[in-house]
């Protein structure tokens, strides 16, 4: 089937089988390997992308279902001015170790801050609760999101 999706601001027309998963279209057809496949069974959140701004697990959605949608992957977080506040936060607070879960973590964090620019620690932990990290114990991930929220409030300066 022919589908049209906008990924990170660029329009793409793809010919996909209905059974092609969105994550495979992103990684295989578009070559954007920042979206990871972890469990492949809707449990870990490593494949998180934003579809029309909403975080979802791209291993549990068919590419044909994204026809006409705007998809944001980790490659789309960096703006014209460089890394986004969330990306800077993960760097500043060392919010990762192996980095495998990090794209998903940064996308749910981006969606959270869009909706709630001043989240409490509980809000952050709740928002990332569908994304599993096996390294950090989540402490520095929470700090990274708090750093990004503070930076955004201070107009891009470090919080």
């Amino acid at each position: 089937m022919q589908i049209n999706i906008n990924v990170n601001g660029t329009d793409h027309s793809l010919d996909v089988e209905p059974r092609r998963l969105l994550v495979d279209a992103i990684r295989g057809d578009l070559g954007l390997r920042g979206t990871h496949i972890g469990c492949d069974t809707t449990s870990c959140g490593a494949c998180t992308v934003l579809v029309d701004g909403t975080p979802i697990k791209s291993c549990t959605m068919f590419a044909v279902q994204a026809d006409g949608s705007a998809v944001t992957t980790v490659e789309g977080l960096k703006g014209a001015d460089g890394l986004s506040a969330v990306q800077q936060g993960f760097s500043a607070e060392h919010g990762l170790q192996c980095g495998f879960c990090t794209p998903g973590m940064m996308l749910v964090s981006t969606a959270l801050l869009e909706e709630n620019p001043d989240p409490s620690e509980d809000d952050i932990r709740w928002a990332i609760s569908g994304n599993i990290c096996r390294c950090t114990g989540y402490v520095n991930i929470v700090k990274a999101v708090q750093w990004a929220a503070a930076a955004a409030r201070n107009g891009g300066e470090e919080g």
Binding site: G45, T54, P55, I56, T60, A127
Partner: peptide, 9 residues
């Protein structure tokens, strides 16, 4: 119900 990502979908 499940987790936030599943609840979105």
């Amino acid at each position: 119900i499940s987790d936030p990502l599943v609840r979105n979908r």
